[in-house]
């Protein structure tokens, strides 16, 4: 019996492995499966949320890697929207327009009236393997509350609380500017950008690039 040469052995192994693959459900296994435990931890640990102040910072910095996705109806969006946000009602998920807006390489911030709709959208996007998705904590309701009427911290407060208050006050005209303009319909003046002093706020992680 002729001995099998190493070359024949190599070819044989490769072809056999390939042949097995040809009948294997590789595509089905390739679907990013949702790891429920991980998502639950992110929600519980609140790492799924971004605070209005941090988002305001991204807006003021004009961070190009952050996309603010407004999930409310287009009528609500027309009423007031966060500066620089894009309107994408949840009903439009799965359309070409949604795929265009929801860029996997960017940081997505989901905004709805409260936390519910954006939370649901967060789960959908996470289960589709979007790496960087955040929910605006408290949604639009909290956002408006924070920036229209910043509450001065009373009693014993930390420097962080004080800083947040200062930021809310300083950023309010910019964040709520569009609304102010709309209520004052006869003079559509441009809102002035307030100078916001940059203090040591933890920087958002830079997106990975290959």
């Amino acid at each position: 019996m002729a001995a099998i040469s190493p070359k024949q052995l190599g070819f044989g192994t490769f072809i056999l492995l390939g042949l097995i693959l040809a009948f294997s459900p590789v595509d089905r296994m390739a679907r990013a499966e949702i790891e429920v435990s991980g998502l639950v931890q992110e929600i519980a640990g609140e790492s799924a949320y971004i605070s209005p102040e941090d988002l305001a910072h991204a807006i003021i910095d004009k961070d190009p890697s952050v996309i603010i996705v407004d999930l409310r109806s287009s009528a609500d969006f027309a009423g007031y929207s966060i500066p620089g946000s894009i309107n994408l009602p949840v009903a439009e998920f799965g359309t070409d327009r949604a795929d265009e807006i929801l860029d996997r390489d960017k940081t997505l911030v989901l905004v709805s009236n409260g936390n519910t709709i954006s939370g649901q959208a967060w789960v959908i996007l996470k289960s589709q393997g979007y790496p960087d998705v955040y929910i605006l904590a408290g949604g639009m309701n909290y956002w408006v509350e924070v920036f229209t009427n910043p509450v001065k911290p009373e009693g014993v407060y930390t420097s962080d609380e004080q800083f947040r208050y200062e930021l809310r006050k300083a950023a309010a005209p910019l964040m709520m500017g569009e609304q102010a303009v709309q209520s004052d319909a006869n003079t559509p003046t441009e809102t002035k950008t307030p100078a916001v002093r940059k203090t040591s706020v933890k920087k958002k992680k830079v997106d990975e690039g290959c």
């Binding site: 070819f11 490769f14 072809i15 492995l17 390939g18 042949l19 693959l21 040809a22 009948f23 294997s24 459900p25 590789v26 595509d27 390739a30």
Partner: peptide
């Protein structure tokens, strides 16, 4: 390649092995 030819990934894998050999 699997998306371009709309074939299962495993089958493309096998064809690439055959091509390589």
């Amino acid at each position: 390649l699997p998306e371009f030819f709309n074939l299962p990934t495993g089958l493309i894998g096998f064809l690439v092995v055959v091509m390589a050999v």
